[in-house]
Computed example of a mutant assay.
Amino acid sequence: MSAVLLCLLLAGPVLLAASRPYDDSNNGTVPLVLWHGMGDSCCNPLSMGAIKKMIEEEISGIYVLSLMIGKNVVQDTENGFFMDVNEQVSMVCSQLAQDPKLKGGYNAMGFSQGAQFLRAVAQRCPSPPMKTLISVGGQHQGVYGLPRCPGETSHICDFIRKALNSGAYSDMVQKHLVQAQYWHDPLNDDLYKKHSLFLADVNQERVVNETYKKNLQLLDKFVMVKFLQDSVVDPVDSEWFGFLKTGQAKETETLQESVLYKEDRLGLAAMDKAGKLVFLATEGDHLQFTREWFTANLLPYLR
């Protein structure tokens, strides 16, 4: 797989530096499920394969499942661009339910778009139970813009830009373009709420689904990582569940300032008060971190 493909849109290569492994002789570990970002795949040795290997080295005996959406790596990568997100979530729910190693529960870690997809799994599929969800650069309030789509001559980048510019909320684009399903236009709030097939649903924008709210609050922890120099996600506040204020595209608001939080439509306010929400920040661009940072800041939530 080319380096260009690895860097497309919201995937981005993950940088890992050498570090001495943790000394952990306890094999009573909680399984971990990983979901990659757009343009990446479950098993690329430069990204998710490296993450999986590193976690297995750091936590002795852990079972790590890196999700493959499709029958092979090629399908997995393509489906990250073009497969209906709701179908992807349903597929993953079935896969997790059929895995005997997960029946006692599991932790989950999503990278970029994989983070909001795993949150949908938590909200829709409480069995087997997700214990801790770690969002690494996830866009929980969606995105509004493509400030840096690596490879400006890429046909995929050009196609996505044109499709979003011509009508992100048309039935055809919503059904067949993954990024459109978490495209959040603050200037066309009514269109977004009415036609967004995925994000408006999981974020309780139309009606409050009490099951979603109940299931999300079953998490022990919901950890959100923001990259302070992120040049891919627009706005970067989405990584902490913030977003642009409705009706304009300049000022942002935090999660705590949002209607979603004030009305507690998803249970996040209750989770925050219970100490279940964790907001982490790190220097660097999208999905760029060292092994030392990962070990010190994220591994404690997996033990």
Rank of each mutant, 00 (worst) to 15 (best):
M54F: 02
M54A: 01
I55K: 02
I55Y: 06
I55G: 03
E57C: 11
E57Y: 08
E57H: 14
E58S: 00
E58Y: 05
E58Q: 15
S60I: 12
I62Y: 00
I62H: 02
Y63V: 03
V64F: 06
L65N: 05
S66D: 10
L67E: 10
M68W: 08
M68G: 10
M68T: 15
I69C: 06
I69G: 04
G70Q: 13
G70T: 05
G70I: 05
N72A: 07
N72E: 00
V73Q: 09
V73M: 14
Q75I: 04
D76G: 06
D76Y: 00
D76S: 07
D76N: 14
T77P: 06
E78A: 11
N79A: 05
N79Y: 12
G80M: 14
G80A: 08
F81W: 15
F81N: 02
F82Q: 08
M83T: 11
M83V: 13
D84E: 01
N86M: 09
N86I: 03
N86D: 06
E87F: 05
Q88G: 05
Q88W: 03
S90M: 08
S90G: 05
M91P: 01
M91E: 09
V92C: 06
C93R: 03
S94D: 01
L96C: 03
A97T: 08
Q98N: 13
P100I: 13
P100R: 09
K101T: 15
K103N: 13
G104L: 10
G105I: 13
Y106F: 12
N107F: 07
N107E: 07
A108D: 00
M109S: 06
M109W: 04
G110P: 01
G110H: 02
G110L: 05
F111Q: 05
S112Y: 04
S112G: 15
Q113Y: 09
Q116A: 12
L118A: 09
A120Q: 13
V121W: 08
V121R: 13
A122D: 09
A122H: 07
A122W: 06
